[in-house]
Design a protein around this nucleic acid. Structure first.
Lengths: 142, 142
DNA sequence: ATAGCTGCAAATGCTTTGCAAGGCC
DNA sequence: GGCCTTGCAAAGCATTTGCAGCTAT
C-alpha cells in the first residue's frame, strides 16, 4: 500500500469514526457527503450539494441528501440557517456566528461570532429559554 | 345617516386614501384585509389571514391574500419576517424591531427596536449596502 | 371604456415519506 | 441475519401564475 493510499484510508476511517460517534453508520453516501462538506465555512442548500455530488461522480439521490443534511444537523455536525422563506441553507460552521445575506443572488457570508455584539437581549418569556440568537444582515446592491 | 354610519364611512374613506396613496386601488378585498390588519403588532401567515377573513364572512381567495400581502409589503405597509423555512410571516409593525420565535408552536413576539442593541456590525462587502439587520431570538421550552 | 383586480385551478418549487431493495456490523 | 440506509417515485405543503371575468375610476 502506498503512502497516499494509507493516508486516504486513514481519512476515511477517521471520518467513519466521527460518524459512528454521533450514532450514524458510515455508509458510502454519508462519507462522501461528509467529505464534500469537509471544508469549513461552507453554506449549501440540498440542491447545491446534490449537484456538487453528481458533478464529482458521486451518485446520491436528492432524498438522501435531505435525510443526510438533517441527520448531520441533528448530530450537531451542521447548522441550519434560516434566511429565506422557501430555501434551507446548511452551514458547516456550527460555532456562534452570524450572517450577511444578499437576497439578489442568494449568497450567504459568515460574520465571526465575536465581531457583532448583541446587547440587552430581553429575558425569554415565562417557561421558555433562549436557544440562540441569530443576526442576519440583509444586503442590497449599493 | 347615523353617527355610527358616518364614522364607518369615514374609516373606509381614510383606509381608501391610504391605499390610493401607495398606488393601490381600494377594492373591497384590500379594504377588508387592511381592516383586519389594522391593529398594530400583528403577525400573520397567508393561511391565518385567510381563515380569519373567512370566519368573519369576508370572501377572499387564498391567491388574493398572497397577492395582497406582497403588494402591502412592497408598499411598505407590512414587513415580511423570515424565521421559518417554509412559512412566511407578515408583520404589521414596519418599524425597526426584532423578534422572539418559538419553533415549537410557531409563535412570534415583537421585541421593541430600542431594547436590543446590535453593535459592531461590519461594513457591507464592496458594492453592497446594509438593507436592514434582523435579530431573531429562538426559544425552546425551558 | 379601460386599466387594474380577483378567483379559480393548475403549475411550481422545495421538502418529506412509503416502501422495496441493498449494505453495514 | 438483522437492522439501518438508500433510492425512487409519489405525496405534501406553501406559494405563484395564467387567464377569463369583474370592478373601480
Amino acid at each position: 500500500m502506498t503512502a497516499a493510499r494509507k493516508r486516504k484510508k486513514f481519512l476515511i476511517e477517521e471520518a467513519g469514526a466521527r460518524l459512528r460517534s454521533v450514532g450514524l453508520r458510515p455508509t458510502r453516501q454519508r462519507l462522501a457527503l461528509a467529505h464534500l462538506l469537509g471544508a469549513d465555512h461552507r453554506h449549501v442548500t440540498a440542491e447545491m450539494l446534490h449537484e456538487e455530488a453528481t458533478s464529482v461522480g458521486i451518485e446520491v439521490s436528492l432524498a438522501t441528501i435531505y435525510n443526510t443534511l438533517h441527520q448531520f444537523t441533528d448530530a450537531g455536525l451542521l447548522r441550519e440557517v434560516v434566511v429565506d422563506a422557501g430555501r434551507s441553507y446548511f452551514d458547516t460552521n456550527t460555532g456562534a456566528h452570524h450572517h450577511f445575506f444578499c437576497e439578489e443572488d442568494g449568497s450567504l457570508v459568515d460574520i465571526p461570532g465575536e465581531t457583532i455584539e448583541v446587547a440587552r437581549v430581553p429575558a425569554a418569556p415565562k417557561g421558555m429559554a433562549v436557544e440562540r440568537v441569530d443576526v442576519v444582515v440583509r444586503l442590497k446592491r449599493a
